[in-house]
Amino acid sequence: MKDGVTVRRLFLILCLIPTLAQAGVYTWVDDKGRTHFGDRPPAESNSEPVEVTPPPPDADNLANERRQRMNEFLDSQQDERQSRQAAKAEADQQAAKEAELCRKLQARLKHMASISTFYNLNEQGERVYVSEEENDRIRERFRTKVQETCG
């Protein structure tokens, strides 16, 4: 018996759904002159039913197309943002390498100031000291290199 009652109730609910979905819309003007809309007309004022027409089927397709275009736009914006971030990270890494190189070159330049004279090694592995003018040229070339590299 319970199954029969449950089936009847379910059938009754299914029959009522279309009428609930097509509930009317009413409009009325209150005593202050404001227009109102609602699904139930008020008892104390005159109301008029408003005909509500569903959107045409093409509206869903247009909405889907707009949504798809918006998603494509957002995806392209995300891709551009990621590529800018990658380029910035690469530029930051390159700047860090250049800063480290400058630090090392400046440290070598400072060390060169403490060296009184430079030498070369000959074929026998012996030291051959360079002249004072050559010392000055070596220091000046290195100073120019540091200036060009580090700014």
Rank of each mutant, 00 (worst) to 15 (best):
N46E: 13
I115N: 02
Q22I: 14
V25A: 02
E80V: 07
R108F: 06
D75F: 06
Y129F: 15
M70K: 13
L109R: 05
G125F: 08
I17R: 01
N61P: 06
D30F: 05
E51D: 10
K97H: 11
P56Y: 05
K32P: 05
S116Y: 09
N120M: 09
A99C: 06
P56H: 12
I115Y: 01
A113D: 14
Q94I: 03
R127C: 04
E90R: 12
P55R: 14
L16I: 08
R127K: 15
T27S: 14
V130K: 00
H36V: 03
A99V: 04
E100T: 10
T53D: 00
G24F: 04
A107H: 08
E123C: 07
K97L: 14
V128T: 11
L121I: 01
R127V: 01
T35D: 02
Q22H: 09
E123R: 12
E51I: 11
A59E: 15
Q77L: 12
P54V: 08
E132T: 15
P18V: 07
Q82W: 07
K104R: 13
E126K: 08
N61F: 00
S116E: 15
F73N: 12
G24K: 15
S114Y: 01
T53H: 06
R34I: 08
A99Q: 11
E132D: 13
E126T: 04
A91Y: 08
P57T: 05
P57A: 10
V52F: 04
L16S: 12
P49F: 11
D79P: 02
E48R: 12
V29M: 01
Q93G: 10
E65I: 13
Q94Y: 07
Q85N: 12
Q94V: 03
V52R: 06
S131V: 03
A86T: 11
Y129N: 11
D60F: 13
K104M: 09
R67N: 12
M70Y: 09
N71I: 07
T27D: 00
A59K: 05
Q124G: 05
A43R: 12
E80Q: 05
S114P: 01
E48Y: 07
L121D: 07
R69I: 10
N64V: 06
A107I: 00
A96G: 04
G24C: 10
A86S: 15
A87V: 00
R40P: 00
A86D: 15
G38A: 06
Q78I: 02
R40F: 12
E80D: 12
S131K: 05
N46V: 15
Q106C: 03
E123L: 11
T19R: 00
M112N: 05
